[in-house]
């Protein structure tokens, strides 16, 4: 959801990002200088990483300076994603993949997609029939595509 952030929160976020870039670039440059890099022909294998780290460092500084300048104001709306949704989506993805590999593609797809749609749909709008149809069709389509047309390697699943 896009929320207009206050100028101050905006600035904090930007400064945080700038700090992250500076830290990453700085740490990288230290690693290139003191870490274990194989020397090699054509500038060695640390050449391009070193350039990229320097660019990160410089970009971080530019962003930070730009934000600290007086008279600066936010120019766009910013993104807001609940942390729970991020974690939930990634966990769902991992669970889906494991289920496909160990339980079977048709069943996992149908059940997990139905569950996810159910969770995302406002309770007052939920139509079990529609959700079931979408989930079953997806399950069938996934089964056809990934076992018949472009088979994926799975440890022999329990179901199909």
């Amino acid at each position: 959801m896009k929320h207009p952030l206050s100028a101050r929160a905006w600035m904090h976020r930007d400064l945080g990002f700038a700090a992250l870039l500076v830290a990453l670039g700085g740490a990288g440059l230290l690693d290139v200088r003191f870490g274990d890099w194989r020397p090699g022909p054509g500038g060695g294998n640390a050449l391009v990483p070193a350039v990229a780290y320097s660019v990160l460092l410089a970009a971080g500084c530019v962003i930070a300076l730009g934000r600290l300048r007086p008279g600066w104001s936010p120019d766009a709306q910013r993104l807001h994603v609940p942390v729970g949704i991020v974690a939930g989506a990634l966990l769902w993805g991992g669970a889906f993949f494991l289920a496909v590999r160990h339980v079977g593609i048709g069943v996992s797809t149908t059940v997990l997609i139905a569950g996810a749609i159910w969770a995302l749909t406002p309770p007052v709008d939920r139509r079990p029939g529609l959700i079931a149809v979408i989930a079953l069709c997806s399950g069938l389509a996934f089964w056809v595509v990934f076992t018949q047309l472009a088979p994926i390697l799975v440890a022999s699943p329990l179901l199909f």
């Binding site: 989506a89 993949f97 997990l112 997609i113 997806s138 996934f142 994926i152």
Partner: peptide
């Protein structure tokens, strides 16, 4: 309705 299907497809497509 679409998001879970697309995410599932992205996961299995990448794996395939």
């Amino acid at each position: 309705y679409v998001l879970p299907v697309v995410l599932g497809l992205a996961i299995l497509g990448t794996y395939a």
